[in-house]
């Protein structure tokens, strides 16, 4: 059997994610045919088994929106990789108005524009992440795949959401998973509960998918969402 093809494409992020992927390139080429701009030309017009999109989508850049739509059309599985692509990350704070293109105002996770199969937060995810993910997708099921699918449907995830949905909601049990999942050390344990240092949160979303409670809420919520959308399709809404 020939190896699956994988496209790695950055839409205008910091390039940290594609570079983190490049670090596992020696392993990645064993399981897939890799197409990336870092190592040569890429062709968005051909079809790929997997497309790994990094970086946020700038809603005000028609060029990038077109590219993203094209990638969606031409790929079997679309993976939003890294915090910007999956949940928005730091760039959600963008307010536009900057030279030389003040019209680039709004940035969003790519799932706001196209259907995404799996969304992986992390700023950036560790290189090994992609290898594990591809292996898991091949097996096709499991809690964590459900989770990354749920993130694609519900990209509003950040330290603030962790606080709102879990901690302030009284659902936190104090396991400490979140404090070990923050790249900027924005979470600290106070009296066995995490507390957010707001000025340190970069909205990468990592803590939320690592939280046993939040991950479960996400999965259940995405099931409801999917049910609702299939109902609305049936009834023609």
């Amino acid at each position: 059997m020939s190896k699956p093809t994988i496209l790695i494409y950055d839409l205008g992020g910091c390039e940290g994610c594609p570079l983190s992927i490049m670090r596992v390139y020696p392993q990645l080429i064993n399981i897939a045919d890799v197409y990336t701009k870092c190592l040569g030309k890429v062709d968005l017009d051909r079809e790929y088994d997997y497309a790994v999109v990094t970086g946020p989508i700038c809603i005000n850049s028609p060029k990038h929106v077109e590219e993203l739509k094209k990638i969606r059309k031409n790929s079997r599985v679309l993976i939003a990789y890294g915090s910007c692509a999956s949940v928005g990350g730091i760039i959600l704070y963008a307010r536009g108005g900057q030279e030389p293109r003040p019209e680039h105002r709004v940035y969003a996770p790519i799932s706001r524009v196209v259907r995404v199969d799996y969304a992986i937060p992390g700023c950036p995810p560790a290189p090994q992440m992609l290898i594990s993910l591809l292996n898991c997708i091949r097996r096709g099921k499991g809690y964590f795949l459900d989770l990354f699918r749920a993130v694609a449907l519900n990209p509003k995830l950040s330290g603030f959401d962790l606080m709102d949905e879990v901690v302030l909601n009284g659902l936190c049990v104090g396991c400490g998973a979140c404090v070990l999942s923050c790249p900027t050390n924005a979470l600290q344990m106070i009296d066995n509960r995490p507390d957010l240092i707001p000025e340190k949160c970069i909205r990468c979303g990592t803590c939320t998918v690592r939280c046993p409670r939040f991950s479960q809420i996400l999965i259940q919520r995405s099931r409801l969402l999917q049910k609702a959308s299939s109902l609305s399709r049936i009834s023609g809404v």
Partner: peptide, 10 residues
């Protein structure tokens, strides 16, 4: 060609 993310404003 990359979009302007505008960190100075951000």
């Amino acid at each position: 060609k990359a979009p302007v993310r505008g960190f100075e404003k951000l």
